[in-house]
């Protein structure tokens, strides 16, 4: 795959739970080396979309291509280049940090020397070296979150998918993660796809932003492009976000009803950038 080709391509992606449509015909492509932010209100379909990209959920329709590998046809190849950081750091409590990282290295079939080198680097980066032999169950939420970061970065993935990176981290942790994201993309050429409610993070680190509502992408572009689109020319991302997602009670009720009826056709109404311009509610799921 050449460098200029998108590293993530979502083609007509749909996820339904029964007759409820969580993600409704999403089309998206992400260029390599970018930090791509996915924003949206609660239940917009962000987490569902990210979980489909990482293989935690199966799409109902549509395809996902990561680094040239279709996730339905070559799931293992696609997963080899993807790292994932969930919003809640559930890890094996009865392992030590060192054992957890060694286990991740084994899952990705890394050479022992590389595993050792990466563990040394990452434990230092995330300030966990002195806790390496402690059981994870004794870690605080923030420490667990840092350990999950270390685990996701251990195999040096080309694509890092991050769901709500700042949950449970203190201000120092926020700074660490923001600096790390920049370093990973600028120095290592990694692509980061992150969903967040912390608009300040998105504003600071994202090269491109997509705003998702009711299972659709309702806008995408750089922050300045989004400002233009929303009409809030010199507003903060918060203003842009609120303008783009604002709707009346009736509009919201109608769109939620539409999502429960099984979603809309991708040809119903198309937005300015060729994206579906519809909206709606829910998500979560997964094991």
């Amino acid at each position: 795959m050449s460098e200029s080709e998108p590293i993530v391509v979502l083609d007509n992606l749909v996820k339904r739970y029964g007759n409820f449509t969580a993600v409704d015909h999403i089309e998206l492509s992400v260029e390599p080396g970018q930090i791509f932010g996915v924003l949206g209100p609660n239940g917009a379909g962000k987490t569902t979309t990210l979980r489909m990209i990482t293989g935690l959920l199966q799409p109902t329709e549509g395809t996902i291509t990561i680094d040239g590998h279709r996730t339905d046809l070559e799931p293992i190849e696609a997963k080899k280049v993807t790292g994932f950081i969930p919003d809640r750091p559930y890890v094996y409590d009865k392992l030590t940090a060192f054992e957890y990282l060694s286990f991740v290295g084994g899952l990705y079939q890394m050479k022992s020397t590389t595993v050792a080198k990466r563990i040394r680097e990452l434990l230092a980066t995330f300030e966990l070296a002195e806790w390496a032999d402690s059981l994870i169950e004794s870690f605080s939420h923030g420490m667990k979150q840092r350990l999950v970061f270390a685990g996701a970065l251990l195999p040096e993935p080309k694509l890092l998918v991050v769901d709500e990176p700042m949950v449970g981290l203190d201000p120092k942790g926020h700074r660490l993660i923001k600096d790390l994201f920049r370093k990973l993309t600028h120095r290592d050429g990694m692509t980061i796809l992150l969903s967040t409610h912390t608009l300040e993070v998105a504003e600071e680190v994202c090269d491109q932003i997509a705003i998702v509502n009711h299972g659709h992408i309702i806008a995408r572009g750089t922050l300045s492009e989004l400002r233009m689109e929303s009409g809030a020319n010199d507003g903060s991302l918060e203003n842009v976000f609120l303008r783009l997602t604002q709707e009346s009670e009736e509009e919201r009720a109608e769109k939620v009803a539409q999502r429960f009826a099984g979603g809309s056709s991708p040809f119903d109404s198309t937005g300015a950038d060729g994206q579906v311009d519809e909206n709606d509610d829910d998500e979560e799921g997964a094991a």
Binding site: G55, P75, K79, T82, Q109, A287
Partner: peptide
């Protein structure tokens, strides 16, 4: 595996 099962689903393993 409990809530840690995401690790297996996301890892390159069948």
């Amino acid at each position: 595996e409990g809530r840690s099962f995401w690790m297996i689903l996301q890892a390159p393993i069948t």
